[in-house]
Design a protein around this nucleic acid. Structure first.
Lengths: 255, 255
DNA sequence: CGATGACTTGACTGCTGTCAACGTGCGTGG
DNA sequence: CCACGCACGTTGACAGCAGTCAAGTCATCG
């Protein structure tokens, strides 16, 4: 570490990047908002100290106060059934918003937990709402983001409802690949920040099934996997396996 | 504009009910909007001639122009895979909005088809957006509705991901029951407007499985089923079967 | 009255879950 | 530095839930 920290608040100031300079501002909430307006949005955003792996951003039942945008790292969101079982509902990468499902009832139906060291931008919802009435572009973007979330959830439902285990895992990997690419990372090599259990849980599969599929995909030359490091060797064939429209998941082209 | 269309479509005028007088205005888009504002909302809404069973409200790929609120009847929304297979994503009852997933990309990712004679209110989206900037309550309600949709989709994902066939069907029936009750219909007797195939498709089950489960539920005294007519005899036990928090689906209590 | 579509029921199969044992990497502490 | 424990991951054996295929029943409609 470069040890720039001079005092305590200053160090926080340094890792703080305003929306205007944030590399994610083209895929995050500020999409479609002009520079001046972005300053106003920036002003209501609170950058918190990073979460450590395993920390909770919020828990089921917590009062809803703010939305969160992932700045770096990753999260998983999950519901907990009465017997303590988790159901993973999604994984959030940088630029993605968390907590949208809490607006309706003013409390969080899911828990969000950091999968690794993760920093987020906190966006107080009442201020966001107030600002939206003044900035039509912001209002529009909010609706877009929520619509996209609905669309993504529908894609997940589709996968869970009528795809085989192999199709689900292939689609999951392609989706991750697309999301990493969009963020400027490699689309063919990346590290999974979630466990096999989390993946299986999310995809509605037993973790053993996920493990077996990774082995099989590797034997078939589709990818190379070593613990959590993934290298996609034959992305096209993997795409076919997923029997999903692989480009549809990836609206980057619309920019 | 107080100009109710005077000539032209007299028959339509008769079936037209303004939001202010609509029995659904407490569960539909106008929730939380005061009388004056409701008039403005009402003014942009277009009431179309009813759809016949099997008619499409919109199809996959159609340009997104408007949201729709079901006024009477019911719809199903579904995606179509390249080989022509349907995947049912949901069923819409009176008071529910359709098309929210289309905002992000300006075209409809799903097809919506009437399951019976169905009338809808068409809400042109650009006008709705413009109006929302003037009516904070409307903006808030839009966000609430979309958040609720996200939440509902998450519940569906949960069911598809880790529930048995029996749990899924039980949860589906309870959900229908709750939704009918909220609309002032009986929560213990109703007609299914969708086929066994649709139900199975929606729940990620073969239609034969759905059929067998109906038979089994009936043999166990949980319900009485005759073709599409359902009578729930032991709602509590059905609730337990569904291993879902049956009240959570039913936010009617919040009113 | 036959055709059609929706639904039911039965027989069989197979995908995937469960249970269980084992391997592997990593951090901790002696 | 090594031993150990622990979490995570892999692999195998087996079973069962639900899918598929197929035949048969029922209601509706032309």
């Amino acid at each position: 570490m470069p040890t720039r920290k001079q005092e305590k608040v200053v160090s926080l100031k340094e890792i703080t990047v305003a929306c205007q300079e944030c590399s994610l501002n083209e895929i995050c909430l500020p999409v479609g908002i002009d520079k001046n307006d972005m300053e106003q949005l920036d002003a209501i955003i609170d950058r918190k100290r990073p979460l450590a792996r395993g920390d909770h951003l919020f828990k089921v039942g917590d009062r809803f106060r703010a939305l969160y945008a992932v700045r770096s790292g990753s999260l998983k969101t999950f519901a907990t059934s009465e017997d303590g079982q988790e159901q993973v509902m999604g994984f959030q990468l940088p630029g993605e918003l968390v907590g949208l499902d809490a607006i309706a009832h003013n409390n969080h139906p899911l828990t969000a937990r950091a999968l690794e060291t993760t920093s987020v931008c906190e966006i107080p919802f009442d201020q966001l709402e107030a600002l939206s009435t003044q900035l039509p572009d912001l209002q529009r973007q909010m609706l877009r983001v929520m619509s996209q979330e609905i669309h993504d959830d529908e894609q997940s439902m589709l996968a869970l409802g009528q795809r085989s285990a192999e199709e689900r895992l292939a689609a999951f990997l392609i989706s991750l690949s697309n999301r990493y690419r969009r963020r400027g990372f490699s689309s063919t090599q990346f590290n999974l920040t979630m466990s096999r259990g989390d993946i299986g849980n999310y995809l509605g599969l037993a973790l053993e099934t996920v493990s077996r599929l990774f082995t099989r995909f590797q034997n078939e030359g589709l990818l190379k996997v070593e613990r959590r490091h993934i290298e996609l060797l034959d992305r096209d064939r993997l795409c076919q396996f997923s029997s999903a429209n692989c480009d549809a998941d990836n609206p980057v082209s619309r920019t």
